[in-house]
């Protein structure tokens, strides 16, 4: 029962964050919300009895992907400022 409640709330948060990731003007916020989608998906994997996948998603899907996104965005913006 509690799993159901948690999964519904997580689903709502994930969907809202996915829409923000597509439609927010600010690219930083979009990347951040994509990271939130990954983090909450990892809790959902935990509910689906897949702790291995949850660990992978938390470490790789949200952590390193966000980090690489920000490095690339930093590079692009710095180039943009020099132009």
């Amino acid at each position: 029962m509690i799993y159901l409640i948690i999964s519904i709330v997580l689903g709502i948060i994930i969907l809202i964050m996915a829409f923000i990731a597509l439609y927010h003007r600010n690219l930083k916020v979009a990347i951040l919300s994509a990271g939130v989608v990954s983090l909450f998906a990892s809790i959902l994997y935990l509910l689906l009895d897949a702790p291995d996948v949850a660990l992978t998603e938390a470490a790789i899907g949200s952590g390193l992907t966000t980090i690489i996104f920000f490095y690339v965005l930093n590079k692009i913006q710095r180039n943009d400022a020099e132009k």
């Binding site: 996915a18 990731a21 597509l22 690219l27 979009a30 990347i31 994509a34 989608v37 990954s38 998906a41 959902l44 994997y45 996948v53 998603e57 899907g61 992907t65 996104f69 690339v72 965005l73 692009i76």
Partner: peptide, 17 residues
């Protein structure tokens, strides 16, 4: 393009779920 890549990662997460 960056937003397309973000959408790609959302797509990825969806298939995994």
């Amino acid at each position: 393009i960056l937003r397309i890549i973000i959408s790609f990662s959302l797509f990825d997460t969806g298939t995994h779920i």
